Amino acid sequence: MKMAAVTSVSFSSISQSKFPIASVRNLASNFDAFKFRSTILSRDSCNLRVSTSSPMVIHCMSTSTDLPTVSETKLNFLKAYKKPVPSIYNSVLQELIVQQHLMRYKSTYRYDPVFALGFVTVYDQLMEGYPSDEDRETIFKAYIKALNEDPDQYRADAQQLEEWARSQTASTLVNFASRDGEVEAALKDIAERAGSKGSFSYSRFFAVGLFRLLELANATEPTVLEKLCAALNINKKSVDRDLDVYRNLLSKLVQAKELLKEYVDREKKKREERTESQKANEAVTKCLAGYQYAGL
């Protein structure tokens, strides 16, 4: 896949595109393509330690305690958010939390702000149009806490990276290593870990986070991503492929939401028609009763 195919579609424009209608029930299976590379799990769990040099850089220290199971993580989420979630959102959330659980408890996993930005971007796109803004944020917090992480840190780091990216150009974005700053320090830490074997766990959230940085900096030329991946010691082919998977996932979500809206509109129209018919019948009944009362 050529990068131009990816960079020509922004996150905001995806929802405006027209696609063939797909079945809502297939959305969860389509989401299966967004799985993380996480086939081998360590028996070590992670305690977080904040770097004194950069608050945005989080390190993971292993302990001898057992890892939580996928079922326990899902149960933690259900305990934290007890309201029913509409099926179109719930099917994706359940698949997402399973895959992120597997990624979260890999021995090489380290939280980083680019990953956080990617997840926040994915979540906000998936949950766009949710009936309640308050519930949407409550679900977000319940989801992250179920994974034993801090939802406030996710939001804060994502916001900080977004603000930083808006002030960057293609040149300054790629040359982060030559400058000082909190975000720059976090990127340097990622580059250092990604350059050494076994200390960096790449994921599709990370790929989405990278592209979000490029989008906000208005630096979506194909060569910019290539240079940024090289500076971070990230495999660009993996990023290209994962961005394409993410774009396809969003297009399928748009299709499902369109189907849901059509269904809701039809049911609303039927209810209105039934109500009007019932009112008409009641009016006729009252009229006939009036005639009978008058002896006509």
Rank of each mutant, 00 (worst) to 15 (best):
residue 218 N to S: 15
residue 8 S to M: 08
residue 194 A to W: 04
residue 223 T to G: 06
residue 291 Y to A: 01
residue 26 N to E: 00
residue 30 N to F: 07
residue 215 E to W: 09
residue 260 L to V: 08
residue 196 S to A: 02
residue 174 V to P: 06
residue 97 I to V: 10
residue 65 T to R: 12
residue 176 F to N: 11
residue 273 E to T: 03
residue 150 D to L: 10
residue 207 A to G: 04
residue 106 K to C: 07
residue 69 T to V: 08
residue 194 A to G: 03
residue 84 P to V: 04
residue 283 A to V: 12
residue 51 S to Y: 01
residue 72 E to A: 05
residue 267 E to Y: 14
residue 131 P to G: 02
residue 286 K to W: 09
residue 106 K to Q: 15
residue 47 N to F: 08
residue 56 M to L: 06
residue 112 D to E: 12
residue 139 I to P: 12
residue 130 Y to G: 03
residue 285 T to E: 10
residue 264 V to Y: 09
residue 247 R to I: 07
residue 135 D to Q: 00
residue 196 S to Y: 12
residue 128 E to H: 09
residue 225 L to Y: 05
residue 211 F to V: 03
residue 262 E to I: 07
residue 218 N to I: 08
residue 119 F to I: 09
residue 90 N to C: 14
residue 231 A to N: 10
residue 57 V to N: 05
residue 7 T to H: 15
residue 96 L to A: 10
residue 254 V to Y: 04
residue 267 E to D: 03
residue 70 V to T: 11
residue 140 F to M: 03
residue 150 D to A: 12
residue 214 L to V: 09
residue 10 S to A: 05
residue 112 D to R: 12
residue 146 A to N: 15
residue 9 V to C: 11
residue 170 A to N: 07
residue 104 R to N: 00
residue 36 F to P: 06
residue 121 T to K: 03
residue 228 L to K: 12
residue 260 L to W: 13
residue 211 F to R: 05
residue 263 Y to S: 04
residue 147 L to I: 02
residue 84 P to C: 06
residue 276 E to R: 05
residue 257 K to V: 00
residue 200 F to N: 00
residue 164 W to Y: 05
residue 155 R to K: 06
residue 251 S to C: 11
residue 173 L to E: 07
residue 231 A to R: 13
residue 23 S to Y: 00
residue 233 N to K: 09
residue 193 R to S: 00
residue 20 P to F: 05
residue 2 K to N: 11
residue 85 V to I: 14
residue 119 F to L: 15
residue 171 S to W: 13
residue 139 I to F: 07
residue 245 V to G: 11
residue 258 E to H: 03
residue 138 T to M: 08
residue 17 S to Y: 02
residue 5 A to P: 02
residue 9 V to A: 15
residue 92 V to P: 01
residue 86 P to E: 04
residue 288 L to M: 11
residue 245 V to A: 06
residue 219 A to E: 09
residue 293 Y to H: 02
residue 58 I to V: 15
residue 208 V to E: 07
residue 286 K to V: 15
residue 179 R to K: 11
residue 80 A to V: 12
residue 28 A to R: 00
residue 70 V to C: 06
residue 164 W to F: 04
residue 259 L to F: 13
residue 8 S to Q: 11
